[in-house]
Design a protein around this nucleic acid. Structure first.
Lengths: 206, 206, 206, 206
DNA sequence: CATGAATGAGTCTTCATTCAT
DNA sequence: CATGAATGAAGACTCATTCAT
């Protein structure tokens, strides 16, 4: 999956100073996205907020899209890392425990910067390089898939690809939806219910 | 949730010709969205494609957003109508049958114009009046909620609001995801699995 | 020779008002080119000088290049028309008379807007659609070629294509050069000498 | 014509390394011009291609224009040197021989780096210091002028300035045009015809 | 009511050049 | 003197929307 010329970071910052610049740009972008939404996020605002000239911005990112893409990548990385760590940690645990922990860590992952997450999910068009947003699901799905493998004889579904797909997407979308729904607290009860739906699916032989 | 001045259709077309104009605009918008995506959909293109002057377009819609909102509304209506009809029809049916039918009709609903559905979901920012995209879920959730009411003693979850939320969002998101995933056929097996996850959740007492 | 999307006029002005707009744009461009040169000619200046919004400019011309190209086309047309008319008129005249008249009319053609001509020739990069500048030579060459045909047995060169090439380019470049050279008056003597070089070439059998 | 501050090479490279740097810059510029044209030649690209930092580039050249100007100067020098040598060599030769040799050497001179020559002629705006492009003609004209002096009584034209002008510009422009015209081979026949037009002009008494 | 010409604020992006390290 | 990060003026172009006809 080679990155297109338009979205590949233009040059990697080599000196300390330029690393700070890139960092400042990403942080500024995060703030603006969270405060004003994707539509009114533009490169001039980003540069200004980052305390960087517009020229510097374009030294490191070839386009506005590339900045958002980088942000998405970071965000996705940090989320999947948390999840991966937990799944590896609970590899040996009984299904119920593992699932409950998975649910917990996914919720935590969504709590890191939930406002940003919402903006990315709801406002950023999944077009071109920005499709990477879907990567989170894909990577979580892969992690789950390999976990299921180890539990193959504990679970009912035979088609592990499909089962991982079902789990990953339900998990993700329900957490999204809950986070976006002010009337619904993401509390113990929700966590419990989320664990239930996944666990039932895997174990109840209907 | 009263409509703002900016997104309420400016006047209801009452004469025959007006209705045709509105129709032409919405159809043109659909085509352009499907063919070129949301980003390159603009009012001038829409007017041209609809065979209508840009001035006339603004007679019927106060803004670009209003056009998309109208489209979303239509789309959501047609989807929820199908689902509502089916749920009412199966009100008396046993849980398993009802759920299976619900799954079937949801899949059908996504098949009416799947390309448009994808564009609306993935590319249209859920901001301002365009948040209505979420209405489909909300309305389906309400329908399910009232169905669950009738089945209260057949099912395990006690918090019906939460249960309806779980079902509606899982259903919706899994069908979306499947439709967007070329490697996954939306076939009998998928339908079966989707029914399973919902049914297990409602009946298995974990 | 189909025009590329970037340089083809965007829409032909249909109403009276828009014809005036296009005209104003071209006139403004001419003035700015003559006064400030190609490098400092930009679309914003053109629009302002034309008393037209930048948006209007882009209604009719898809790019800056397209405006210059249109100007070149006009300029080339007016030049070649003059020359064509004269050559047709002198078809029957003896060689010396015809050549002298050709020289005269070419000089006149360069005198219509010599400053513009210089800018177009010296400053506008002959790239993309702007290569049309060379069309003047090509079209003059074709006209001369067909004239030579009628004089075939009066002249020495046998390869009429080559002869037309020699005449057209010498003519053009010498007039250019003379116009650009302040120390050289484009006077009777120059006209005489120019006629001489062409006539000698065609008749003297060396 | 004193050089302006902006285009005079900033310092003459005196150490070996400096000479290499300047050389590398000019060579890189040549390559980029030939490959991508003048429009997309910029100082950052030049520096990168030359394997030199942009800062160093500005140590040796005060502006972009100065780089191109230096290139033009070199190119013009190498062309005029060839021509000068030949003309001096043929000072005693009969007119026809001298002219034929002049034609030959001019063609050779255009063959040294024809692609670069085309780019310089067609794409580089003859503005400011870049007017030097015209120097080739001027210098050739001066050389021819002094040669004609020695042949004064062999030739018809009395105004030697004008005659030199005619010869220099015809020669130059016809060779340019031929080089730019893919349909026309620069072969023996062309060489012959070019000699003819010059020789006829000088000798035939029309 | 239809038309389509006109508007202009707003955005992205480039690139010659400077300057701190 | 070399480096390359930083600068920012400048310019091309889009598109939602208005308004004269």
């Amino acid at each position: 999956m080679p990155q297109s010329e338009r979205t590949k970071p233009r040059k990697l910052p080599q000196q300390e100073r330029s690393k700070e610049t890139v960092e400042a740009i990403l942080i500024a972008t995060t703030h603006i996205l969270v405060e004003s939404g994707h539509e009114s996020t533009n490169t001039n605002k980003i540069a200004e907020r980052a305390g960087v000239s517009i020229g510097s911005l374009y030294q490191y990112f070839p386009s506005k899209e590339a900045i958002i893409a980088a942000l998405i990548e970071r965000h996705a990385d940090s989320m999947t890392c948390m999840i991966e760590a937990k799944l590896l940690d609970k590899q040996e645990a009984p299904l119920e425990v593992a699932l409950r922990e998975l649910v917990k860590v996914c919720i935590s992952a969504h709590t890191v910067n939930p406002k940003l997450h919402q903006v990315l999910i709801k406002q950023v068009p999944r077009v071109g390089q920005l499709e990477k947003l879907n990567d989170v699901e894909k990577r979580v799905q892969a992690l789950i898939r390999s976990y299921l493998e180890t539990q193959r004889n504990q679970i009912q579904p035979q088609n592990l690809d499909l089962a991982a797909f079902m789990l990953a997407h339900s998990l993700e979308s329900l957490i999204h939806a809950a986070a976006a729904e002010p009337s619904l607290a993401v509390n113990e009860e929700f966590e419990q219910e989320l664990t239930a739906i996944l666990l039932c699916y895997l174990t109840c032989g209907l």
